[in-house]
Amino acid sequence: MTVYLIALSAIIKREALRFVHQRERFVAALVRPLVWLLVFAAGFRAALGLSITPPYQTYITYEIYIVPGLCGMILLFNGMQSSLSLVYDREMGSMRLLLTAPLPRWWLLTCKLLGATIISILQVYTFLFVAWLFDISFDPLGYIYALPAFLIAGLMLGALGLALSSFIKQLENFAGVMNFVIFPTFFLSSALYPLWKMKESSVLLYQICSINPFTHAVELIRFALYGQFNATALGWTVLAVTAFMALALWGYDPARGLIRRKG
């Protein structure tokens, strides 16, 4: 095994161990989308009528509609959570340990991103399992087709978190940034309502939703759950992964002196 893979495996294992030790984080990450699915969706079922749009070939219930968005929500919150833990790690020093390893910084950050994304995907599948218990289910193959979509969407949101963490100097600043990132990202997307409905209310908001990378990540997942491939959504999501990762690498460039402290 090369030094690159040894480091990758160790970083993923550490993320997994940290996750196992933070069960409350797991429960919180699961409860949030389940409340939306089982409470919010039930309440809004009557209010929000849905027409037949791809990938759907028949009328669907609102619960079915929001599942891909809620999978995206898990990935979004976890991406931000891992960003928070990076800022924490940086303040606590363990980020220094990682960044002083004799490996390229881009690889170390990619390992960290992959580790966090794998944990997120495990949570998404746990959520889908609970949804299945409540009879909100998809074709069995859809769950397999959706895996690469979860991976790409998770990488995109993790890279966004990574980029944000490089610009947040202190832990205290985190809550504010999250409010300006999580909520607009989630609500200005197709996670909770189809974009044509948004267009009926406001063309401007529709246009903002249309360029939101999270919309494309959700659509990528939505189509994949029905065994369909959405090339536009994939293109936008991959573009966003590249852009956010480039931003993160720039943010963590040692020449920029990210971890600057006066000594």
Binding site: T100, P254, R256, L258, I259, G263
Partner: peptide
């Protein structure tokens, strides 16, 4: 001192 350590460990350059 800490600044010098950060440079020595390449946390920044």
């Amino acid at each position: 001192k800490s600044t010098l350590f950060s440079l020595l460990t390449r946390l920044f350059t």
